[in-house]
Design a protein around this nucleic acid. Structure first.
Length: 419
RNA sequence: GAGCUCGUAGCUCAGCUGGUUAGAGCGCCAGGUUGUGGCCCUGGAGGCCGUGGGUUCAAAUCCCAUCGGGCUCCCCA
C-alpha cells in the first residue's frame, strides 16, 4: 500500500475502536479486583526524572543502560517511564504517604516505554498494570500481592499459568552468595559464553539467567541462593511458601529465578504462560525493601508486581477467551425527509435521558441505508419517522431482533423501551 | 544490537520457473425493493504490487539496498 505521510513510531501501536473494548473490559476487571483487595489507584506522570529511574531500577540493568527514551530540556532530564514501581515509590516519598497511616496499598494501569526491538509481546510503548504494598515487611503482604495478581488472571480466565518463586536474598545473603558463585564459576569460565564472562565481572547472579547452551551444564550444578540466605530471610521465604499453600495458590520454586531489575530483594516471582512464545512472562514482581531508601525516603519495606496487558491479550487469543460482550444500541431513529430529521434530533435527547443509547443518521441516507446502518450498529429497536408518522403522531417501532413492528406514540415507545 | 523470514485493494490472501488493461473472498457504496436491515442477485469505487535503485525488449515476479511486520537470540511486560 502507498506510504502514508505519517505513521506511528516503531513499536508503538494505535488501539482502534473495536479493540478498545477489550482494554476497557480488562481495566474494569483490574479496578474491580483491586477494590476487593482494598487497593487504591495511583496515577503518576508518564515522564520522570532520569535519575530516579537510573537509581531506582539500577544503572547496570538493560532497561537503564540501553532502553530509555530520555531527553533534556534546559536543566531538566526527562525520561519516559520504563516501569512504574520507582515512580510510585517516588510519589510515596514525595507526598509523605506514610502519614496516611498503615500500609499503602496502591495499584496502577498505564503505558510504559522501553526502546527495544519490537516483536510479538514486546513493544516500545506497552501497558502494564501493577500493585504495590508499601510499608509491610510481613510475608502476608507478599502473598496478598501475588493473590491479587492471580485473581485478575482468574477473572480473565487464564488459568494454565505457572507461578515461579524464589528468594533473591537480602544484601547480606546476596554478598555471601555472590562470593560462592564466583568461586564456583571461576574455574569453568573459559568454557562458558562471552556474555557469562562479562556478567561474571558485573553481576554474577545474572549468569544464572543465561540461555546459552554451553553455560547450561555449569548452571545446573551452581550453588543456589537459597542455601545462603540469612536465618531471617530464610524464615521469611518459608513463610511466604507456607502462606501460598494455605491460600492454595500453586507455585514452583525456581532457585535460579533472577529478575532484571536491581531493586529486588528477598521474594521474587514470575508468572509464566505457555501460550506466549519467546516472551513468556505475563508478569512478575517481588520485594524491594531498599528502593525507597535508595531514592531518598525512610527505610520502608515494600512488595509489588507488574504485568503486561498486551501479553495478557495474546494469551487470551491463544486460549480463545473473549473479554468483550456484544455491544447493543438501544434505539436507532430512521428518518425520511428534513422534517423527520428535525424530529429525530429533538427526540434523541429524550431517549438518552431515559438511559437508552440512541443514534440516527446524520448524512441524509436512504431508508435502506439507514436500516443497514442500524443493523450494523446492532440496534435493538428502530423508530421509523416519515410523513405519515408525523401527521398521525404515531411512529413505527421496529424490533430488529424479532423483525416485528407496530405504531405507537412517542410516549408509549419511551415507556415500552424503558420497562 | 545479531540471525532467519515476509511485505500485492480497508481486511485475509491468489498471482507457476519475468510477457498484453493486476485477481478472489470479505468489507464499503449503489441498484434490484419509488418508506424497511440481516439472505440472495447485479453493478461500482478502491492497488504506479512497502520504498529506492539495478538486470532485461519486458519485472508484482530476478538482484541489491532501505523501511516495516513476524520468528529466534539477548532482555523483559
Amino acid at each position: 500500500m502507498a506510504q502514508p505521510t505519517f505513521s506511528t513510531h516503531v513499536g508503538m501501536v494505535d488501539i482502534l475502536p473495536g479493540e478498545v473494548e477489550k482494554w476497557q473490559a480488562l481495566e474494569r476487571i483490574i479496578h474491580e479486583e483491586a477494590k476487593k483487595f482494598n487497593f487504591e489507584e495511583i496515577r503518576t506522570p508518564i515522564m520522570e526524572q532520569t535519575e530516579l529511574i537510573a537509581r531506582g531500577v539500577g544503572q547496570l540493568t538493560d532497561i537503564v543502560s540501553k532502553e530509555m527514551f530520555a531527553f533534556e530540556r534546559g536543566e531538566d532530564q526527562y525520561v519516559l517511564r520504563p516501569e512504574c514501581t520507582a515512580p510510585v515509590a517516588r510519589a510515596f516519598v514525595e507526598h509523605h504517604l506514610e502519614q496516611r497511616g498503615g500500609t499503602q496499598n496502591l495499584y496502577y494501569i498505564g503505558p510504559m516505554f522501553r526502546a527495544e526491538k519490537p516483536q510479538k509481546g514486546r513493544q516500545r510503548q506497552f501497558h502494564q498494570f501493577g500493585a504495590e504494598v508499601i510499608g509491610a515487611d510481613d510475608p502476608a503482604a507478599d502473598v496478598d500481592i501475588i493473590a491479587l495478581m492471580m485473581s485478575i488472571y482468574d477473572r480473565v480466565g487464564i488459568s494454565n499459568t505457572s507461578l515461579k518463586i524464589n528468594s533473591v536474598g537480602d544484601p547480606e545473603s546476596r554478598k555471601a552468595y555472590t562470593k560462592a558463585l564466583k568461586n564456583y564459576f571461576r574455574p569453568h569460565l573459559d568454557d562458558m559464553s562471552d556474555i557469562s564472562k562479562e556478567r561474571f565481572e558485573k553481576n554474577p547472579l545474572r549468569i544464572l539467567d543465561s540461555k546459552e547452551e554451553e553455560d547450561q551444564p555449569f548452571i545446573e550444578d551452581a550453588p543456589v541462593i537459597t542455601d545462603f540466605l540469612t536465618e531471617e530471610t530464610e524464615a521469611h521465604y518459608a513463610r511466604v511458601k507456607e502462606l501460598l499453600n494455605e491460600l492454595e495458590i500453586p507455585f514452583e520454586e525456581d532457585p535460579y529465578l533472577v529478575r532484571g531489575l536491581d531493586y529486588y530483594t528477598r521474594t521474587a516471582f514470575e508468572l509464566i504462560s505457555p501460550d506466549l512464545g519467546a516472551q513468556d512472562a505475563l508478569g512478575g514482581g517481588g520485594r524491594y525493601d531498599l528502593l525507597i531508601e535508595e531514592i531518598g525516603g525512610q527505610h520502608t519495606p515494600a512488595v509489588g508486581f507488574a504485568a503486561g496487558m498486551e501479553r495478557l491479550f495474546i494469551a487470551c487469543e491463544e486460549l480463545g477467551i473473549d473479554l468483550v460482550e456484544e455491544e447493543m444500541l438501544d434505539v436507532y431513529i430512521v428518518t425520511l425527509g428534513e422534517e423527520a430529521r428535525t424530529w429525530g434530533l429533538k427526540h434523541l435527547p429524550k431517549l438518552r435521558k431515559a438511559g437508552l443509547s440512541a443514534s440516527m443518521d446524520y448524512i441524509g441516507r436512504s431508508i435502506k441505508a439507514q436500516m443497514k446502518d442500524a443493523d450494523r450498529e446492532n440496534a435493538r429497536h428502530v423508530i421509523i419517522v416519515g410523513g405519515n408518522e408525523l401527521a398521525e403522531g404515531k411512529f413505527t417501532l421496529r424490533n430488529m431482533k424479532a423483525s416485528e413492528e407496530d405504531s405507537y406514540t412517542f410516549e408509549d415507545i419511551l415507556n415500552k423501551l424503558t420497562n
